[in-house]
């Protein structure tokens, strides 16, 4: 399949996923159980992506020792619980991560 077709298809599907709940075509008044399951989707979809970024190296091997990514990942969870703010979490953790990963430059 051509790359352009794939891009357009993914674009249409992304738009449809966003549009369907707003279209008014489907009523989403489900049971409490249904709503709770739907609410879990961002958690169960984004967590594997986070795990992949923190626990696998560039060659897709599971890392065997604690690295700066893991330390900063847990730090981000703590900062997020404390500040409850997306930007603060990103900026503070990224700053610490950049300092840790470039500390040898500071030491000369």
């Amino acid at each position: 399949m051509s790359v352009w077709y794939l891009i357009f298809l993914c674009g249409v599907l992304t738009f449809l996923i966003r549009f369907i709940p707003l279209s008014g075509l489907i009523k989403f008044k489900g049971s409490e159980l249904y709503l709770k399951v739907i609410n879990l989707i961002p958690i169960v979809v984004l967590t594997p992506i986070i795990v992949q970024a923190l626990f696998f190296d560039r060659n897709d091997n599971l890392i065997e020792s604690v690295n700066f990514e893991i330390i900063c990942g847990f730090l981000a969870i703590l900062i997020s619980i404390l500040f409850k703010n997306v930007m603060t979490t990103i900026l503070l953790t990224m700053l610490i991560f950049l300092i840790l990963t470039n500390i040898h430059y500071f030491n000369g």
Binding site: I49, A76, T89
Partner: peptide, 11 residues
């Protein structure tokens, strides 16, 4: 991944 952590942790 930091953005994703920041989005899902409060959830």
């Amino acid at each position: 991944p930091l953005s994703f952590i920041a989005i899902i942790t409060p959830m």
